[in-house]
Design a protein around this nucleic acid. Structure first.
Lengths: 208, 208, 208, 208
DNA sequence: GATGAATGAGCGTTCATTCAT
DNA sequence: AATGAATGAACGCTCATTCAT
């Protein structure tokens, strides 16, 4: 919800501001992120900032929307072209891998997401509250599709499984994140993860 | 690592301070949590605080230890009495349920834990770095026990599964957390969760 | 190195701030001088101070520059017009007298200088390290001129004598400083000082 | 003026406290020197400190007395045995050299002295005011002796020359002080200094 | 006499936001 | 619409000194 003044800005200036903001919020949690820094980095007048955005929170929400949109675009292009034609677990794998790839290619956006999810500050919680349903909805649709395709048990608790897959999705990058960024070999364990989700960890009759 | 000055304080005063600190760090992330507030709430002189603790970080570390210890005590009493005599999945269920119960009974401690885990600030990361191995180790031991008991597949990736169970554990309270605290019905879905971990979500031969 | 914000301030306000700062640093050494006091005396918002200067050190360095510049201006106008046309000892006398006059007319600036020179604090030492060579260089040039003019012995140790004259210069105001400021009769003894430097204190052949 | 409680302390404890205090006041100017540090270094109770000394100022004055006394003892032993039997300039040389030697052997005491002399804080100025006459008196006696012995001009301004020699004495260590302490070759230039004082820097009749 | 916890004014600095131009 | 100076509450922390035991 930036003000119309922001939307009317020349693209170059808009980009400069958003880029500085992404940088700041990627490297600092909500409270530590400094509007002053963003103003300096993007080389605008401090007064101007408040003609573009209501306040810090307004900017942060805008960033969160950007992150979400960019990820969606990324996954759409790469993966979600024909979700109903692929086996559920293949789709899930691609989805998770896509998420990791996106994170690897956009570490700052990942960082902003993490800062949102993990920071129990009033603003963050409020935003989270608004966002959660979206992600759940997304997986609920996938799961129903999977059941229809016969890839998933019919008696599964859709609601809960959606939450579960969402949660796993969120923690994925934590799995593979090291000090130097995302582990290069992150893709291999995704397979193991899918296996667990698919078959569980209990030995089956016939297993040795 | 509070100073001895703190340890020697009368219990009532110690409790007052810790209580105020828990309150503050439960409701605010590390940076926003205010020593000034804690000092006011606990009604001590500002100088006294620094006779008790080296600095803000020292207090925070102490709180984290308290949270960890209290959770450990709680689980020990409730669950971990004879871990090798119980089926792995029963144990896991009890563990997760125990964690949720603890969180429900101690919402402020849960909140502090979340603030530690999720806040990408230097201090928090430093502390996390020190704590992470502990949690992983804990689940690794459980998993090896489970394999020995025949509850788990032999060819499972122990390291990875431990991380997976740790991660699930961390996200559990997120599952069931609402604005008013923990969902009363949280216990039912834990069963569903265990089922997924145990058997996966793929239909097996013989399922209808 | 005050920020441009400061330089752009209306002269009246700049003067108010500098005046308050001179007062504070004249009456207190670097550590005891209080930014808070300066802010109150000059009636600006505390935040404003840090829009004008980086920090306390930045302000102090600026004051030192002001003191140096004002003294230079003073001496230039009064004394240093044609240094090569005057006898070395006449020049020295005028220089010392000029320094004393400047100190008498600007006791607060003298005090700041003393606080810089005498206070073995990190900041002061750092600044001193930067300034020392200047003063030595100044006297070295004078001495070489004096030798050329035949006013000084040819075999004099230039380096050392420069240090000596610098040191005497620094201590001069100490000579004549009383609780009420500079002794009114300070000028007379400067002649005696010059005599000592010129002829020493040993009786010569032919003296009674 | 420490309290009698301090005087009655066992020597070992007294020494511990004084040593810690010398260390602190040698490395920091009056305001930055921290009673808290001294208390910690000397391992006494903070309350005890105020049973030994009135306050910070009281301790500092005591240290200054110690420094003065030790220097006096040092010079007495080394130099001042028969002042009237030695040529004035020889005596002066020995005195200055003795001062430098003392400073080289007792760098912490030198540092305290410098901190006193150079720091225009209220306490320091008050102490200086009390001490100055002593030093002047000392040189006045020497000068009168020198005149009587025929080493010095008869018409010299005794008062002023005493101040001059005192001042030179104070600045001497500044001459030769480097980052690593006192210059090893400090003694050579003392001769040059004496030459200046003795004969001045003006060429005499007969000089080439 | 010894102890060491208690005190609280004071410090330099940051920062989101406002407001006059 | 753009500017950038102004604002002031709040921060973590230090320290000489007091006081109850």
């Amino acid at each position: 919800m930036p003000k119309s003044t922001f939307k009317n800005l020349p693209k170059e200036k808009k980009d400069r501001i958003i880029d500085a903001a992404i940088d700041e919020f990627a490297n600092n949690n909500y409270h530590k992120a400094s509007i002053t820094n963003i103003i300096e980095k993007s080389n605008i007048a401090s007064g101007s900032f408040y003609q573009y955005f209501e306040n810090k929170e307004d900017l942060f929400k805008h960033l969160i929307n950007i992150v979400g949109q960019r990820k969606l675009d990324y996954l759409d292009k790469e993966i979600m072209q024909r979700p109903d034609e692929i086996n559920f677990f293949e789709l899930l794998k691609k989805l998770y891998q896509g998420g990791l790839n996106f994170a690897k290619e956009n570490p700052r956006l990942l960082s902003i997401g993490n800062n949102l999810v993990n920071n129990n500050c009033e603003v963050c919680n409020k935003i989270m509250e608004e966002l959660k349903p979206q992600s759940d909805q997304f997986f609920k649709r996938l799961i129903k599709m999977g059941i229809k395709r016969g890839d998933l048990k019919e008696d599964i608790d859709v609601e809960f499984t959606a939450k579960f897959l969402t949660s796993i999705n969120y923690s994925l990058s934590d799995f593979f994140y090291t000090e130097d960024g995302l582990n290069e070999n992150a893709m291999v364990p995704v397979e193991a993860l899918i296996e667990i989700i698919k078959d569980g960890i209990k030995p089956k009759r016939g297993d040795k």
